[in-house]
Amino acid sequence: MTDSPRQRPMRADARRNYERIVAAAQEVFAADGAGASLEEIARRAEVGSATLHRHFPTRRSLLEVVFHDRVEALCARAREHAGRSAPGDALIAWLRDLNIYAAASRGLASSLLRDGRDTDLLQENGDCRAMITATAGDLLHRAQQAGSLRAGVQPEDLLALVNAISLATEHHRDDAQANRLLDLVIDGIRLPH
């Protein structure tokens, strides 16, 4: 296996190209899903197709980086919420972040899962599924220990509900419905005061 661009040092111009490609890919995949045009990504990044393929020899290698970076950012947001909010409020704020991410991704994860070729992407590259499930579990456990949320709710339940909201609303340009549905979920997991 060859070294990935993340493992070996890059020249400054190569690093800039890499970062522009990833930023463009995030936008294009969010708008068009996992099957988005690599040529469009190269065009938006203002690089040639050969430069894109030098950094990312396959569509999957680019998807892995985009997906992994987004999961890491979500996990970092969870730590921020946990550091400044009460446990129940931290989980709810993070669920809102996750809902926004799911809407902004326009079904990226679900399109990977439906596609069939990349269903194991969630398992690879730092084990994104484990990272996000552990993050949800930590926030959920703290909220349950604080008496803010129902016992018996599992992290996978929360992730499945947010994914279901994303699937149900992915063709709507208005995020209001996704937010309303998340509010219903939140009301369902909170303990009455």
Rank of each mutant, 00 (worst) to 15 (best):
S61I: 08
Y18W: 10
A24C: 02
A36V: 07
M10N: 07
R54F: 14
E64T: 13
S4E: 12
H53W: 10
A50T: 08
V22W: 06
S85Y: 15
G33H: 07
R43V: 06
L62F: 05
G88P: 01
R15T: 04
R59Q: 06
L74T: 09
G83A: 13
G33V: 01
A34E: 05
R20A: 07
V22L: 14
R70N: 08
C75K: 09
T51M: 12
A25T: 04
A31E: 14
D69W: 08
T58R: 13
E39Y: 02
R11P: 01
F56D: 10
A42S: 11
F67T: 03
E80P: 01
S49Y: 14
N17V: 01
R70D: 10
A34G: 07
L63V: 13
A42I: 05
R11Y: 01
E19H: 11
A23C: 06
R15D: 08
A86R: 07
R79Q: 14
A25D: 03
S37R: 00
L74A: 14
H55R: 01
S4I: 04
A14Y: 00
R44H: 12
A42N: 03
R79E: 15
A30C: 07
R15L: 15
D13Q: 13
R44S: 12
F29T: 01
H81C: 05
A73F: 08
P57Y: 00
A30R: 01
A76W: 10
A45N: 07
I41Q: 04
G48S: 15
A73G: 12
H53V: 06
R20S: 09
A25F: 00
A12L: 12
H55K: 08
V22A: 11
E39S: 12
S85L: 15
L74I: 02
F56K: 02
E39F: 03
G33W: 06
R79W: 08
E64G: 14
A30G: 15
E72I: 12
E27Q: 13
A14S: 13
D13F: 08
M10L: 12
V22D: 06
I21T: 05
H81L: 05
H68L: 05
F67A: 07
S37N: 05
D3S: 14
H55C: 07
S49Q: 14
L52D: 09
E64P: 03
A82H: 10
V66P: 03
V22T: 14
A45E: 05
A12K: 11
A30Y: 03
R59V: 03
A86D: 15
G83R: 09
G88H: 06
G83F: 08
I21V: 11
R54D: 05
H68K: 13
E80V: 05
E80D: 15
A14F: 04
